[in-house]
Amino acid sequence: MGELILSPLRYERLLEGLSVTLQVLGLAFALGIVLSLVFGVARLSERRWVRGIALVYVEFSRGISSIILLFFMAIAIPILLGLEQRSLLVLGGVALGLNMGGYGAEIIRGAILSVPKGQTEASISLNLTDAQRLRYVILPQAMRVILPPMGNLTIEILKGTALVSLVGLADLTLALRKLDVPQPGVERVPTMVLFANVLVIYFVVAQVINGLFRLAERRTERSYGTRAPIEPVPDGVETAGAGG
């Protein structure tokens, strides 16, 4: 087993790469969630032109190869806008976020449709605004349906971040490939060993994402049971088995 462990210096390189990977992922995720919500809701708008724009976005973002989009954004846009190289990280995150938003919007649209119509009718009868209905009634219930596929999608995006290495962004994958290049005076590590290590790192990150989504799912489920009293129940009022 010992020969599978790399030198501290090599781990340092990989962790630097991982840090870039996570930044790209974080950016893509944040943008992707916002776009998912905006366009998922827009797909169900009463206004035809809003639905139209959302549909164009969804089909565009799902239909375009993310690597082409990435190259376009990473190469064409800095030239067009005269940006510095440093914004590669942002552009990578944006490209993947745009991609995630298209799939995420469909997840959210489906989840909203899965909430029974009676919930909307009850909200109208209580005179909630459309936004309040979405925020307090529909989305909390849609969460049960949103979270599992959104977790999958996030892991897909994690794996997709490896694409940014192709435009020269020093992520985990690029760090791996650099370590695999023979250098004079440095002892080589078998390629297989390097890849095995990076494989484990991606796997661990994916499991962490999985765990976070499971946690969120459990929290969502919990709201469907008895919860602690909102305020202490006054003396003399029995709580009929409530508690915990």
């Binding site: 919930q119 009850a122 009868s125 309040q132 909390p140 219930q141 969502t220």
Partner: peptide, 27 residues
């Protein structure tokens, strides 16, 4: 106007008290 439905249409992710207090708070 208020309405009560055949199939209740309570908000399942809220407690009974939260169901009742939602409109007074938000609306």
């Amino acid at each position: 106007v208020g309405m009560v439905f055949q199939h209740f249409n309570l908000f399942p992710h809220m407690s009974a008290l939260e169901n009742v207090a939602l409109a007074p708070i938000k609306v």
